[in-house]
Design a protein around this nucleic acid. Structure first.
Lengths: 121, 121
DNA sequence: AAATCATATACCCTAATCGGAATATTGCAA
DNA sequence: TTGCAATATTCCGATTAGGGTATATGATTT
């Protein structure tokens, strides 16, 4: 096996900085491919390929209008990333949350019973 | 060029599901490698390698204790992901935010001037 | 010192990326 | 129809991940 395909996941699709940039741009509204080519300063085929990946994971949708293809953000597919990373909020938030988090962690350690990390008796 | 190294970024490091699992586990507290091996059901070398990637991007820290190496979450390094993905919150939130977002988007479109997506006059 | 436990590293392999350049496709225009 | 504009697809080359397996390192105990 090799690395997970970029098209397997929003996580993998979004690991590429250019694709994040594309999503950032599309957050402002629908755009045709050539807009992205110009703004990002990339070659057109690469942009099309990036859009293909984003489309494959459902992060964007396409609509044909005149000779152009208008790409639109489908932000729902970013939710899994948000949901996952949100679970770590307590760790970096403010001091208040840090205290709360510490309490929760202690409780969890107690609840999950003894394991290899246990200090000596 | 090939794909961005997994060690280049928190985004890339976290694209691998196993590594996310490891971080999830470490959220409950420090753990030695063998704990992760047992819990994840992976081979020990693979776990060590995943931990190596996580360490390379600063998502975990290590501390040697007795014969073991205790890995600890360093959640701060997840913040960039959180910050990025947070910018898309308005899109999937509740209806209230959706209205607000629409207004913002319209304003932005107006502000950023004419472009190729413009409808006919 | 030897054996052992815990972990890290090295090697081989296959699959898949991304960029570049060329070319194919599709729709509209003259 | 011929041509052009916008976009997609294909082929190439270099790089690298990640699993598997074997082995090395390092600390601990006997």
């Amino acid at each position: 096996m090799a690395r997970r395909p970029t098209t397997s996941d929003a996580f993998n699709a979004v690991a590429e900085p250019r694709r994040r940039e594309i999503l950032d741009l599309l957050a402002a509204g629908e755009r045709p491919v050539n807009d992205l080519v110009v703004i990002l300063g990339l070659a057109q085929p690469q942009v099309s390929k990036h859009l293909g990946v984003l489309r494959a994971v459902g992060l964007v949708t396409v609509r044909t209008s005149k000779q152009q293809r208008l790409y639109k953000l489908n932000a729902d597919r970013l939710k899994p990333i948000h949901d996952w990373v949100r679970t770590f909020e307590p760790f970096w938030d403010n001091q208040l949350n840090r205290i709360k988090e510490r309490a929760e962690r202690k409780a969890q350690e107690r609840a999950s019973g003894r394991n290899a990390t246990d200090k000596e008796p």
